[in-house]
């Protein structure tokens, strides 16, 4: 969806990295089958994390083999194949991408509107297939999307409220990973905090752009940031960063509590890397303005 949830590669062992990459490539192949060739372009690291959590919670082992693909025509890549754990993340991602694009059509700039509309058309078949398989998830996300538009129109200054719809979407996505009721609520809380992290990080990433365009961004409404338009002063930006750090740390602290309670066994080292190092690393990059929006969904 955004690409913020990713491993910090320098601290992955080679075997962990290979599994991570094989799941990424396996998802891409699965998308071609399940939601159409065009959907492969929407592949993100967030999905890889969702797939890995799915496999960890349901204890699904992976089998991988070397395969060719259009993106890497020369060297064969390790791909996870024949894995039930890949199916739900592909459907969930198709639904999430659909609503993200519809949001772009509704309130993006002229260029964004055009691109979003074209992309939506190209992906509509895959989305419809996914909706058919996960009607409940689709409903929940549609409902939260409506609330998000409502809160944006209200220009709410409360960050917790602004986060709520995104967080609830992720809550819905993650709670469906298990059939066990207790686990569902724990996974839901885990997903909720992850959604908060994504929202806050994205808001910080967009804060300068939103200031220029006059778009709603809750971070522009905190104390100490002038209500007038124009460039953000560096003092104001520092204030926003401090505010975000506080909010992200609170969120990650709670995320870690849920993660420990879930106590997954498989893929633990890679999941630990993402939760304890990867998320903080991405936030640091965003803070320094070094997180490239264009490259973030590319594999390397």
């Amino acid at each position: 969806m955004f690409g913020y949830i990713r491993a910090f590669k320098p601290y992955l062992r080679i075997c962990e990295y290979e599994t991570y990459q094989a799941i990424y490539c396996g998802l891409c192949k699965q998308m071609a089958k399940r939601t159409g060739q065009a959907s492969r372009l929407t592949l993100s690291y967030d999905m890889t994390f969702l797939a890995m959590m799915n496999m960890a919670v349901n204890e699904i082992p992976v089998k991988a083999r070397r395969e060719r693909c259009p993106v890497h025509p020369i060297n064969k890549r390790l791909c996870v194949y024949d894995n039930k754990g890949l199916e739900y993340p592909v459907d969930a991602a198709a639904i999430l991408v659909h609503y993200k694009l519809s949001d772009g059509v509704a309130d993006g700039g002229l260029a964004e509107r055009g691109v979003s509309r074209a992309a939506m058309a190209a992906l509509s078949k895959g989305y419809k297939a996914a909706r058919k398989r996960c009607p409940q998830l689709d409903e929940q996300i549609a409902e939260q999307m409506k609330l998000q538009l409502e809160y944006e129109a209200q220009r709410t200054p409360i960050l917790d409220k602004a986060c709520d719809p995104t967080a609830r979407m992720m809550q819905a996505v993650f709670s469906s990973l298990s059939d066990d009721e207790d686990k569902q609520s724990l996974l839901g809380r885990f997903g909720y905090q992850l959604g908060r992290y994504v929202y806050i990080t994205d808001a910080l990433d967009d804060v300068r752009k939103d200031r220029k365009s006059g778009n709603y961004n809750p971070l522009l409404l905190i104390d100490g940031v002038s209500a007038n338009g124009g460039e953000l002063s560096s003092a104001e930006y520092r204030k926003i960063v401090r505010f975000c750090e506080n909010a992200v740390n609170l969120t990650l602290g709670e995320l870690a509590v849920c993660y420990m309670q879930l106590d997954v066994k498989m893929y633990r080292a890679t999941l630990d890397n993402i939760i304890y190092v990867g998320l903080k690393n991405v936030f640091e990059l965003v803070k320094k303005g070094k997180f490239s929006k264009i490259k973030r969904n590319k594999e390397k």
Partner: peptide
């Protein structure tokens, strides 16, 4: 809450 907002994450001690 203060501990968490200072960057504490439950279980991070066990990683690395």
């Amino acid at each position: 809450m203060n501990m968490n907002s200072g960057g504490y994450m439950n279980g991070s001690r066990d990683v690395y």
